[in-house]
């Protein structure tokens, strides 16, 4: 079997690299019976929000998707975007373990098998001015990355601006926006130090990717190969989670080397931002329904 794997991320991105590692190990474990061909950089034209449907309908046999981009199809996949629900990378890992079975079930409902997950590094805000308290956030025009982050920054008194990534750098250079919310690899990609001075790990939401395979393609494999692939995914997943951490550390170092000031945000400020976002979180949960509330409450009382 040859499986075409579309990747929306550039070839050097650690998620693409991880997919490459996975492909190599699968090749090895199945004696070349399953060959995964990577198409990084969006080369197959898939952009992200349609990936769940694309794997479900067999447009591609295997796919890598950013889970919270799939909420148009499956609202529960947006749980990691719930504002201030998950506070640290460790807690994200715990949530993944807690939610794993349900995630597999959702994927199965969508005619696909979950192979592994791989997280994105923590979310940060990158600003021109120092951030100490809520007052220092007031009115900052910040590029937000999705609906949830938009609402969060709005509630903190900032002015979130929706811009495609391609417009961000020129807008930043010219001053149409004064801040960007994204993780450290993107900050390095965009050479943020050319325009911005501070980075704060606000961690308002988290992003998680999943690698899934279409069930029809999966069922064409014999049991031994299926088992071998599942085993490869299971073995590699911890490495991939570590890779995300390493990637963050590496990029934070680059950002710092280039003269940006990196600082944690104070517990008070984080608490205050979370408080401001609380009604928002409640509203999102209300919209997501009982099932989502059950997951959230279950996780919190774990």
């Amino acid at each position: 079997e040859t499986w075409d794997l579309p990747l929306a991320w550039p070839a050097e991105n650690y998620i693409s690299v991880a997919a490459g590692t996975f492909a190599a190990k699968v090749d090895e474990a199945t004696d070349g019976r399953v060959e995964i061909t990577l198409h990084p950089g969006g080369a197959l034209g898939f952009k992200g929000p349609e990936m769940l449907g694309a794997v479900r309908d067999g447009l591609v046999p295997i796919g890598d998707m950013l889970l919270n981009q799939q909420i148009g199809d499956e609202p529960l996949l947006g749980l990691t975007s719930l504002p201030y629900f998950i506070s640290s990378f460790e807690e994200l890992a715990e949530f993944e373990a807690y939610f794993r079975d349900q995630l597999s079930a959702i994927m199965e409902d969508n005619n696909q098998k979950l192979l592994y997950t791989i997280p994105w590094p923590q979310q940060q805000i990158w600003t021109k001015t120092e951030v100490t308290d809520l007052a220092s956030l007031e009115g900052i025009k910040i590029r937000s990355y999705d609906r949830s982050s938009t609402d969060v920054f709005d509630s903190a008194g900032m002015t979130p601006v929706q811009l495609p990534w391609g417009e961000v750098i020129p807008s930043l250079a010219a001053g149409a926006i004064d801040a960007v919310a994204t993780s450290s690899p993107s900050a390095v990609d965009g050479s943020f130090w050319e325009f911005l001075d501070y980075g704060y790990p606000t961690r308002q939401t988290w992003n998680l990717n999943a690698m899934t395979v279409n069930l029809d393609s999966w069922n064409e494999l014999d049991e031994a190969d299926q088992k071998a692939i599942t085993e490869v995914a299971k073995t590699l997943q911890p490495d991939f989670w570590q890779a995300a951490q390493d990637e963050d550390a590496r990029n934070m170092a680059i950002v710092e080397e280039n003269g940006m000031t990196l600082a944690p945000i104070s517990d008070e400020l984080r608490a205050e931002m979370a408080k401001r976002a609380a009604p928002l979180r409640a509203a999102v949960l209300e919209e997501l329904g009982d099932e989502a509330t059950a997951v959230v409450e279950g996780f919190q009382s774990r």
Partner: peptide
């Protein structure tokens, strides 16, 4: 801009 984003080159 598209190239800059894909190749991780500064657009400016």
């Amino acid at each position: 801009i598209v190239y800059g984003v894909l190749s991780q080159t500064s657009v400016l």
